[in-house]
Write a protein that binds this DNA or RNA. Structure first.
Length: 393
DNA sequence: AAAACGGGGTG
DNA sequence: CACCCAGTTTT
């Protein structure tokens, strides 16, 4: 596509978008705050998954000031289930930075200085909220641009990224300041929304609907019949299998022991039951723990693991306990992991909570208010229905 | 350049 | 189950 083609290309794109663009909630505003929240939530996350989270989040934190003033734990609780939790921590930190600063950065460079805002998100907020001619490349546009350019190399490589970002910049309408005159009158944010929408709904990964594409005339892949060869697929990571064990240690009053994950751990800031990855020789012979009531009577397969867990709980928390009931087994596939999580019940024997770590005894019903991981939430939810040896009446 | 990120939707 | 998702940060 030559520069001479660009006005017609943009016109066809925008006509199509006006007729076929989805009415997504964050497209109804030019306020940087809700737009920024949506962009961070949408990082590596589908639109369908984000919509309900975005609605709840904006209701709880209607302004950047409200978000900045919130406890991190409340932010994480609203993020629970969305994954990639560093996004929530960065969002919270960035909100504080914006409030401290007194105003939003109004440039790509300024936006990129915010934690969790990279090249794409900065361009998105700059163009959608501020109407700046900032290019964007993300999953949808990577695919669209690679096909338009008939880019045969790896679009995720340095060279590929350079080519795509260059193209992303080239298709934007000239701004008034750049052209020195009145400008094109076309909103760069609208062009960016349109290319993403086209990539997301027409220029799809499998079986792109080129017959419905408003810009197929300018598409190198379509012209040469290479739609299914371009772009090259992303390398698939190898799946890692892991078996872990977690313990709900219960006190006489029914409260269970939880700890907040440290800043340098996975799930930083989230809460969790004491959780471990025991040596594999201790878990390979553990029979399946279906959720059952009463708790599974434990056999030879579990015994060495139970002793190990008892020691591990004491080392991690300071609490002495007897681990004595197989309660539940959770199988969970996430990103590149396939996890078998063995859930046990334990009874407190004595000991004090170690100082220096954030830990609490909490009634199972109150776990609703704490941010937990997916599997932590599953265990917590089932806990109300489970009872085991050592129960107080 | 590669790995981590521990979640969900879709066919 | 395989593959992908409006990426960013750390190693």
């Amino acid at each position: 596509m030559t520069d001479a083609d660009l006005p017609a290309f943009r016109a066809a794109l925008l006509d199509w978008y006006a007729a076929h663009g989805r009415d997504l909630p964050w497209r109804r505003t030019r306020d940087p705050y809700p737009i920024w929240v949506s962009e961070v939530m949408l990082q590596q996350t589908t639109v369908a998954a984000v919509v309900p989270y975005w609605e709840r989040f904006l209701e709880a934190f209607p302004t950047v000031e409200a978000l900045a003033a919130a406890p991190e734990s409340a932010v994480l609780r609203l993020w629970e289930g969305l994954g990639y939790y560093s996004r929530a921590r960065n969002l919270h930190a960035a909100a504080k930075a914006v409030v401290e600063r007194g105003e939003w950065p109004r440039s790509v460079e300024g936006l990129r200085d915010l934690p969790g805002v990279g090249r794409y998100t900065a361009g998105a907020v700059a163009s959608f909220a501020f109407g700046l001619p900032a290019p964007i490349v993300e999953a949808n546009t990577l695919r669209l641009y690679a096909r338009l350019l008939a880019y045969r190399g790896d679009p995720r490589s340095s060279a590929g990224q350079a080519a795509l970002w260059d193209f992303a910049e080239r298709i934007l309408p000239p701004s008034p300041s750049e052209s020195g005159e009145s400008g094109s009158g076309v909103d760069p944010g609208l062009v960016n929304q349109a290319v993403m929408e086209l990539g997301g709904t027409v220029c799809t990964v499998k079986e792109p609907r080129c017959g419905e594409c408003p810009v197929s005339d300018w598409c190198g892949a379509f012209t040469t019949g290479l739609q299914s060869e371009i772009p090259l697929p992303k390398a698939r990571p190898k799946i890692t299998e892991v078996t872990e064990a977690t313990v709900a240690v219960r006190r006489a009053d029914g409260a269970v022991l939880v700890r907040q994950r440290d800043a340098d751990e996975r799930w930083a800031g989230l809460w969790d039951f004491p959780r471990f990855e025991p040596p594999s020789e201790l878990t390979t012979n553990v029979p399946t723990l279906d959720a059952r009531q009463p708790a599974l009577p434990l056999g030879d397969g579990d015994t060495p693991l139970l002793a190990w867990l008892s020691t591990a709980v004491q080392e991690q928390t300071g609490v002495r306990c007897e681990v004595g009931a197989g309660l539940l087994e959770i199988r969970h596939g996430v990103t590149r992991y396939r996890i078998r999580l063995l859930c046990y019940g334990g009874t407190r024997l004595g000991g004090r909570l170690r100082s220096g770590a954030t830990m609490r005894w909490i009634q199972p019903a109150a776990l609703t208010d704490l941010p937990l991981s997916k599997t932590g939430r599953q265990f917590a939810t089932r806990l109300a229905d489970l009872s085991w040896e050592g129960d107080s009446p």
